[in-house]
Design a protein around this nucleic acid. Structure first.
Length: 589
DNA sequence: GCCGTTTTCGGCCCGACTGTTTTCAGTCG
């Protein structure tokens, strides 16, 4: 059973408690949700955690849930869970993914209409609503029946909570929206919030914070946004839209003197905020997006925070970068004034994964921009060096001697260009396939024409974990293989990637001076942040690359940096923050 | 059900918004 599946089961238990009696079981509900969060966000499998006696150390897993999980891994089921779930029809759970449905509404409708099939329940509800059978029920009405139909329609189109978009697309949408918002004179400040501000790899809703003295005018301006599909809600302090592309955008406002609290509150993460509120409560303060309330005899006074810095300072801590606000120890470190100094975009001195348009007759897709133009762009980005790493020549279409000659010509070209472009250093790399056998697609003689090679998997993704791990380790053990590119092989929203034994990969990389890539491409963002966080414990070094196939892709570096920051990476963890000479020294190790 | 430099018992995060309601329940973030 995967962690994902276990987390889902725990969430179902929370839902079941909530349906049974949300007041009586309020804290059980909360506890099971927290346990689900904990399981979901750990990169080690529960089975392994049990083996190493580490399960109980996860925050939110206590003696009771630990015993249940033990039983689950051992026998495949948990008697206690079964007894709780037996009163809740299975058809309730798929509905929870539909916008507007929570546990209560789902349970009410499923039981009222005796729906039993989880596979058809959404369609069944849609049919019932269309027949007008929901509006007459107590607590429902015409409006809520229409809402249900719309929620189901949107779910079908992948709108709302069902899908999350890759970070760079969300950032683009937010940028446009911010420049629109700033056209209003009433907007004093506008910033993205939520997972977008924390730079998570995927973003659900796009949340926006605005500081203003006249929220009603800002909200009017916001809901007049020309690229909207419709308005979901509109209140005194905020509003929500669905854009024509299906993305949801939420606007939240506060007066400027409270902007710090607003930013902090809606940047989250939820767990970070819960931990902060518990901390504040001990000091006698209650937190909200408006500020802090102190309980006193004279009633309640609100403390206001114009900036996030002053907010965190008031609680006795340093300002925490949004990327690491996940309650993974950042609060304790901030209290001790001991936060890591995260890597920044300006630290980057080069990009090593560049596919130019050089006609190498590659095994995979070719770049679209000439080497010369890529170098001009690199200069503009302030880089000291650029590494060309086209895909290796296609094996099936060329003889060995063809390949040697292609590689020799390319080497001449790079040397020539290197001499003529004095403003930047050029590194001759290659992206070489690791074949299913673990052999590299290029033989030793072909690799003599490059200074080093990036290696990566582009075929046979379905291998089991042990075979795939052996394959990668064998490929990486070639002396010229220095960087493992897009290590999980995932493509966000389309492919899950293959499984690797990360402990073995990290140990090997750390011991043998091999770097792991953090790929900045929107659908990749790979290695993912949670694995970076683990890898750093092994002393693994990284390179942050863009995998550019066009000059414009080179701007994506900031997203790779944000992934690294979310994994708590500092400048010294990232090899392409090194000067050219130091980087070459590492490359030749 | 979890958790503890104020506690091994007694707490546990907070508010906005909507719809169907005459004071609240449900959903969301």
């Amino acid at each position: 059973m995967t962690n994902q599946e276990i987390a889902k089961l725990l969430r179902n238990i929370a839902t079941a408690y909530f349906i049974k009696d949300d007041k009586k079981y309020r804290f059980q509900t909360l506890a099971y949700q927290r346990a689900a969060d904990a399981i979901e966000s750990t990169s080690t499998q529960v089975k392994d955690l049990i083996q190493d006696d580490e399960l109980e150390k996860l925050p939110g897993i206590g003696p009771s849930i630990q015993a249940h999980l033990l039983e689950l891994i051992k026998t495949g089921t948990v008697e206690y869970f079964e007894s709780i779930l037996k009163d809740i029809p299975q058809a309730v759970f798929p509905l929870l993914d539909v916008p507007g449905f929570g546990p209560k509404k789902a349970y009410r409708l499923v039981t009222t209409f005796s729906l039993e099939n989880p596979k058809t329940v959404i369609k069944d509800i849609e049919k019932i609503a269309k027949q007008g059978k929901i509006a007459p029920l107590d607590g429902f009405g015409e409006k809520s029946e229409q809402d249900i139909l719309r929620g189901i329609a949107e779910f079908g189109k992948g709108v709302g909570k069902a899908t999350r978009m890759a970070l760079p697309y969300a950032a683009e949408i937010a940028e446009k929206l911010i420049s629109y918002l700033k056209k209003s004179e009433e907007v004093i400040e506008a910033e993205p919030l939520g997972s977008l501000r924390r730079m998570r790899s995927t973003v659900g809703d796009i949340d926006m914070a605005v500081a203003t003295k006249h929220p009603e005018k800002v909200i009017e301006h916001f809901i007049a946004y020309p690229y909207k599909d419709r308005i979901i809600e509109k209140g005194e302090l905020g509003a929500s839209l669905i854009l024509s592309g299906g993305q949801q955008v939420d606007l939240l406002t506060q007066p400027p003197q409270r902007f710090g609290s607003l930013l902090q509150h809606f940047t989250g993460s939820k767990n970070h905020n819960i931990a902060l509120r518990e901390l504040a409560l001990k000091k006698g303060y209650s937190l909200s997006e408006r500020g802090m309330k102190k309980e006193s005899r004279d009633g309640k006074e609100i403390l206001e925070f114009k900036t996030e810095e002053s907010f965190y300072k008031f609680l006795g801590m340093d300002w925490i970068p949004p990327e690491i606000r996940e309650d993974k120890g950042e609060i304790e470190r901030a209290l001790k004034h001991d936060l890591p100094n995260l890597v920044e975009l300006k630290d980057m001195k080069g990009d090593l994964h560049i596919h130019s348009a050089y006609p190498i007759e590659p095994s995979h897709d070719m770049g679209q921009t000439s080497m010369e133009d890529m170098l001009v762009k690199a200069k503009r980005l302030g880089y000291e060096y650029l590494g060309f790493s086209e895909h290796n020549p296609n094996l099936s279409k060329h003889s060995k001697s063809d390949i040697y000659s292609i590689m020799a010509k390319r080497k001449d070209k790079i040397e020539h260009i290197s001499l003529s472009k004095k403003y930047i250093r050029v590194i001759n790399l290659l992206e070489t396939d690791i074949l299913p056998s673990g052999e590299l697609a290029m033989d030793d003689k072909a690799l003599e024409y490059v200074d080093g090679t990036i290696v990566s998997i582009h075929s046979n993704f379905g291998m089991d974990m042990n075979k795939m791990t052996r394959r990668v380790l064998k490929g990486l053990s070639h002396p010229k293989a220095k960087i493992l590119a897009h290590p999980t092989g995932r493509l966000i929203n389309s492919r899950n990637g293959y499984e690797l034994d990360w402990e073995k990969i990290f140990e090997f990389a750390s011991a043998n001076d091999k770097a792991i890539e953090i790929n900045s491409f929107p659908e990749r963002l790979d290695l993912p942040d949670t694995l970076i966080y683990e890898a750093i414990k092994y002393g693994v070094k990284f390179v942050i690359n863009t995998d550019s196939h066009h000059e414009k892709h080179m701007d994506l570096m900031k997203y790779g940096v944000s992934v690294a920051r979310r994994g708590w990476a500092q400048k010294h963890d990232i090899l392409n923050t090194l000067s050219y000479n130091d980087f070459i020294t590492w490359l030749n190790k």
